[in-house]
Design a protein around this nucleic acid. Structure first.
Length: 306
DNA sequence: GGCCCGCCCTGATCGC
DNA sequence: TGCGATCAGGGCGGGC
């Protein structure tokens, strides 16, 4: 499942091929990929034709490709961007021009790069939770760059409510600690709340909580400032390690822009390990239902205090 | 406004 | 062999 490390691998892979490229042709094969787009498929295709891509940016699990500002896009100096979310199974692939249709292909964007020549940027998505849209950019309230891969202090309007992620230079540990500890809900729920901290999904939430020895159901308000700080350090550690290993792939659902899987699945300590021995204490990892998902944790190392 | 539930969707896998 | 049930889960609308 694409969480921050997987999305960053995609962004970094895309950047050299798309920044500076001009869009030649757009083909929407399945309109369900445009659920976040305000117009129809024809308007999406038409609005992008001829536009140049100026960056490949990311905040949390959202990606966006800012477009060269034109005098007539109606959005002032900030302009517009193609904003994408991979959902559960979305892939952005770079292919040779005219390459065969991908399985679950939803949108194809043919681009022309001044150095790399013609390329096809293909959005494929099995479970159709992912989407692409054209959105206008809005200023970042804190005036810092909107995310990784851009210097502009702006994000697409659809991303404005998303918190900064823990790898972002402008992320405030103190603010996160204050916000989290003001919440009475379970700490895992807070980690998954993209308006509090972004980029963390079910896998890395379980991994960071295991590493910090915190039970996922612990009310966030019960955590000391020191515990929150330890948790944040483990969140960063697990995200950076996964990033270094190219992300987590269980099956063909997550791949980089060349269609290759990541290696981090081999490094998981808790996630998916229901019944397996805890790598720290040897007692069995437990899997429980949580928020209509699964939580994996070690009941011995991660105690729920009463 | 905070918090939580349930829905969206498809394909792999499992059990009968 | 075939078929139905189950599971994966991020984001958001809506209800309390």
């Amino acid at each position: 499942m694409p969480e921050l490390p997987e999305v960053e691998v995609v962004r970094a892979g895309l950047a050299p091929a798309v920044v500076g490229a001009r869009i030649a042709q757009v083909t929407v094969a399945d309109e369900r990929a445009l659920t976040r787009h305000a117009g129809d498929a024809a308007s999406f295709e038409e609005a992008l034709r001829g536009r140049a891509i100026t960056a490949a940016a990311r905040r949390g699990k959202f990606l966006w490709l800012p477009l060269e500002v034109t005098s007539n896009d109606g959005h002032g100096d900030l302009g517009e961007a193609i904003v994408g979310h991979l959902g559960m199974s979305g892939q952005l692939l770079l292919r040779a021009p005219g390459a065969a249709t991908e399985r679950h292909e939803r949108v194809r964007i043919d681009i022309e790069h001044p150095v790399h020549g013609e390329l096809a940027l293909v959005f494929a998505d099995q479970r159709t939770f992912g989407s692409l849209a054209i959105d206008h950019l809005v200023p970042s309230p804190d005036s810092a760059p909107g995310g990784w891969g851009t210097d502009a202090p702006a994000t697409p309007s659809q991303v404005a409510h998303i918190a900064r992620d823990p790898l972002d230079d402008a992320f405030s540990d103190a603010r996160f600690s204050r916000t989290a500890r003001a919440k009475g809900s379970a700490v895992k729920r807070v980690l998954l709340d993209q308006t509090v901290v972004s980029g963390i999904g079910n896998i890395y939430a379980d991994e960071a909580l295991w590493a910090a020895r915190i039970h996922p159901e612990t009310p966030a308000s019960d955590l000391s400032a020191r515990a929150v700080s330890r948790l944040l350090a483990e969140v960063r550690a697990v995200l950076l390690k996964a990033l270094a290993e190219g992300g987590t792939s269980f099956d063909a659902q997550y791949v980089n822009v060349n269609g290759q899987a990541g290696y981090f699945a081999h490094s998981l300590n808790a996630y998916g390990g229901g019944g397996q021995p805890c790598p720290r204490c040897g007692r069995p990892i437990v899997r429980e239902q949580f928020m209509n998902r699964s939580s994996h944790f070690c009941p011995h190392c991660q105690r729920l205090s009463r």
